[in-house]
Design a binder for these strands. Structure first.
Lengths: 349, 349
DNA sequence: CTGAAAGCGCTTACAG
DNA sequence: CTGAAAGCGCTTACAG
């Protein structure tokens, strides 16, 4: 590793950070009283005398005191920290959720540990264990992968909140996301109304409940409209650009080109679009509909019709659930928070 | 907030997590011995007997023991946690650095708290204080904003590592980034070689040392080549797409169109490109050169010539510095780690 | 209204 | 090679 010659070590002259004991001494009270001032709430049964309170606050000010989160956590057993497990924070859709979550948590006095899992079960499981060792107030799991460790963790003291992708069968824990089946239906109804004859679909993986629900909703809405989906025009992708590209290639190679294709997420729609372009086609020839309303659309695909998933609301909802959980520690909360979605109909469909 | 009727609270039946005391009891040793096994290093002066070691490990296994990071931190005064302060993790360039940092830290046993500052001094300062209260091993500051609190924090026990943007004058702390002046010079030399007659620049803000160094390097290389930069063709932007767009508008309105423009970062180059397109121009008319090699280029601008900044190496370098700092707690380390950059010459210049 | 004391889960001199 | 004890910085019953 290249480095400049000017490397040097010096002793730094640091004064120890002040503790409750320092404040107590300075204010002439006990540490218990300092702690009470620190944790004073509205309806306290034995409040600190106003005059004492003033004195303590003054001492804190003088010493530049800030309570140690570590001492507090060891005593209360729960840190003002939340872990966010996320497949990949460089994915713009996830990044938007991570950002919203961090902001909402900060406003409520929590810090956020970011954990990229790459959807790797081993990394997810290691983080699940490690975050418990940090006594985090909650683990927010975006895109949970089903493992034995996840079941264990879900039954531990540390609450797990499932974001976007629902908890696996039989695993307890609140869910925050949208009603994917209803969203799939809405897209199906839109397709039926538009009167397209040959309707295709590039769906997400079978292993993802969200993808499954989206697909089934879409399928059933078309069936209800008397236009059942042709299984030959259904392809499966891995929610990546490349897989969308490949899936569209298969659809086009099939001989009878679809008029419109519902893609399981926006990234696959980008890939499908690229493949169309490669074949000299456009969304005028094959309409495209995505899912997520990926923030990249603003730069990459202003033309893409899609289902808007309210990523920025995910964070606030998660933060609220966590605060509520913190106030009911030790109880298990089964809860579904379904956020509103809407179709964002643009040029492509 | 909409919610399903099926909300319910249940008591969860949780067994307490095992502690050193449990392991000690199970293994028939003292907690001190358990701790020694936990922290055994290669060259220990008083090692635990192999047989005892086995017994302790066995007990840990049996109990599913995992040491509490909180207990450890309270005792050692330093958490296996690092804080990353970042302007905006939804920016692809920063997201790439955050991801690389998280990965490198995880491999070294550290968790990463992510803090978005929005370049807001108040948020940065609050996080600087709060992260000290968490006893983080280090604060990694990407895009530091100069404040009084930053000076205070830089002189505290908690090491601050400056990423990409150098520490302000007189603030101690290691720096990891590239040699921006050299990179600017390299671009200047490239421009001189290409022989463009009218050379323009959309530089970043004066307040950013990195932007200043890039610009000055560029300017001096051109001067050295006998083609001094015309001040009328220098505009300033805020490192955003919009500001690049606006700056290019000003350049074009100036009457004498430049042949080639060096942009302070890739986002401004995107904006400049959009403005060119709006005027019916392309990079064949006005060559563009960016800076950063933003990961978005792969999708958004495969044509953009730019300076490749090795974002993925930032994370590893930061993690290494932090581990080294952890081994020299209380000393101050002045250190410059300059990572290699290179020109990525593509179609646009 | 306030204080003395215990204890959260570790690590580390100090003895032996 | 191992153990007893102190202590990191807090909070919270328990007394008064």
């Amino acid at each position: 590793m290249p480095e400049r010659p000017g490397q040097a070590m010096q002793k730094s002259a640091n004064k120890r950070r002040a503790t409750v004991a320092d404040v107590a001494r300075q204010a002439g009270v006990s540490v218990a009283t300092v702690s009470r001032v620190l944790n004073a709430k509205a309806g306290d049964r034995n409040p600190v005398a106003e005059e004492t309170c003033q004195r303590v606050r003054q001492a804190m000010q003088t010493l530049g005191y800030r309570p140690s989160q570590v001492g507090r956590t060891l005593r209360t057993q729960v840190a003002h920290v939340v872990a966010l497990l996320i497949p990949d924070a460089t994915n713009a859709f996830y990044a938007a959720i991570a950002h919203a979550t961090e902001t909402a948590l900060r406003e409520r006095g929590y810090a956020m540990i970011l954990c990229n899992t790459s959807e790797d079960p081993a990394i997810q499981d290691e983080y699940l264990r490690e975050m418990q060792a940090h006594n985090v107030a909650a683990i927010v799991l975006l895109g949970a992968v089903e493992t034995a460790e996840l079941r264990t963790a879900a039954n531990s003291d540390t609450p797990i909140v499932f974001l976007n992708r629902r908890a696996p069968q039989g695993v307890p824990g609140p869910f925050i996301g949208i009603d994917n089946a209803a969203a799939g239906e809405a897209v199906g109804e839109h397709f039926a109304e538009r009167g397209w004859a040959r309707i295709g679909c590039i769906r997400g993986p079978q292993t993802s409940p969200a993808s499954r629900e989206r697909f089934e909703g879409f399928q059933s809405a078309l069936a209800a409209a008397g236009k059942p989906l042709d299984p030959d025009l259904v392809e499966q992708g891995a929610l990546t650009i490349e897989s969308g590209d490949a899936a569209m290639a298969r659809l086009l190679a099939g001989g009878h080109r679809p008029d419109a294709v519902f893609c399981g997420n926006d990234l696959m729609a980008y890939g499908a679009h690229r493949r169309l372009a490669d074949q000299g086609l456009s969304v005028a020839d094959v309409a495209l509909f995505g899912f997520d309303d990926n923030p990249l659309n603003a730069w990459l695909a202003t033309w893409l019709s899609t289902v808007h998933v309210p990523h920025s609301q995910f964070g606030r909802a998660a933060a609220e659930v966590i605060v509520e959980l913190a106030n009911h520690r030790g109880e298990r909360m089964e809860r579904q928070i379904l956020l509103p979605f809407h179709l964002e109909v643009r040029a492509s469909a």
